[in-house]
Design a protein around this nucleic acid. Structure first.
Lengths: 206, 206
DNA sequence: CCAAAATTTAAACATTTGTTTAATTTTTTA
DNA sequence: TAAAAAATTAAACAAATGTTTAAATTTTGG
């Protein structure tokens, strides 16, 4: 029955690479087939259609996207430690997958995936108890009175955007990829201090 | 010679609308023609090709994108006032043009515009003297020792990203557009306090 | 080893793509 | 008002698109 399982995986890997860099509309199934070193018929043999293949890749990307969050939140740390670790881990992760934020936001922006975010992506985060830990700290007056949604927006802005803005930033300042990466490292440190300082009012690190 | 100047403008407006929402690859010239209520031949009559039309739209968008910055920086205000005004004005501007950040970053990301950022976009910013004002404040010890590039990254992250993340954020938290916009307003206030607090060390607002 | 199943391929398919052609209509201008 | 110029249209073009078909090859299981 099964022959060489890696064929299906090879196609997925190629599709991921091509979709990530060119987007759903920006590539043809022949681009992907060429990346695999095969034909378009094989893609549809395994995945039925370009759209189905894309949805598979998108779900995987979304899963990766949220995975590092879950790991940190599941740990046995204080809220401050969790936030610091989260920022560290997310930067580490996106250094390895710099196209991911753009791919996710772009796909959602252009409705390339009609499905609303599956609850099985969100539940694991809620199940870590991070939200309760956050509300508890707020009730105790340890942290500022800021909503979880605004806290999330703050974190995502500072962690996702830099990777999405690579081209703009490089052109804007006339710097190359190397300098940009050095700036990224500095940005991470700034963001950590910035957010911790802001959130934990009684704990000025300045 | 000239007949109805508004035809050319009507096409540009339609192209802007379609390109912004669907992206260069995500739309056909027929989509744009339909939006105008005309034919594809007319598009090429005025603009020669889809690519040329896109570049025109992109340049216009980039110009808008930087315009609000220039206005604020040209004013006769203190650095702190300029930063606060910048955040206010940028939010105000992107409330009116929420698709702009995604359009710009996405276009650059996929190399839909080969031309590096024209210097006539950057010079006006440099000419406002904002960079000197910033370095001066740093030398006087009024603000933290942070590079202009990192300061820019901080500002852009917190101002651009929220508008790009609308779909993700709405799905993530299960909120609608109205709640999202309310969160945006709060985010603006947070970012202002956050950044000013961080930058002007001697001026803790907490 | 051999038939059946699974995999891979080349070719064809109907649409859609960006662009061009040539004809028609409208506007200009002299 | 009539010839010239400009604007608009419908139709056609070749190339590229996602998908399917059917044949060929390889793998599997008895």
């Amino acid at each position: 029955m099964k022959r060489d399982l890696s064929t299906e995986e090879k196609i997925k890997a190629a599709a991921k690479k091509v979709f990530m860099t060119k987007g759903f509309d920006g590539c043809s199934v022949r681009d992907i087939a060429k990346e695999v070193g095969s034909n378009v018929a094989l893609l549809n043999y395994y995945f039925r259609s370009k759209e189905k293949l894309f949805e598979l890749i998108f779900e995987g990307a979304m899963s990766d996207f949220l995975q590092s969050m879950i790991e940190v939140f599941s740990s046995n740390l204080t809220l401050q430690e969790k936030l610091e670790q989260l920022i560290d881990k997310e930067f580490e992760f996106f250094m390895e997958h710099p196209e991911l934020p753009m791919f996710i936001l772009q796909s959602l922006h252009q409705n390339k995936t009609d499905a609303p975010m599956p609850s099985h992506f969100l539940e694991p985060i809620a199940n870590t108890g991070i939200f309760e830990q956050f509300e508890m700290a707020k009730a105790k007056g340890e942290i500022r009175d800021i909503s979880i949604r605004n806290m999330t927006m703050l974190l995502m802005s500072n962690v996702h955007y830099p990777f999405m803005s690579k081209k703009l930033t490089e052109q804007f300042h006339g710097i190359d990829a190397e300098v940009f990466e050095a700036d990224l490292i500095k940005h991470k440190a700034i963001v950590k201090e910035l957010i911790i300082n802001y959130l934990f009012i009684s704990n000025p690190k300045a």
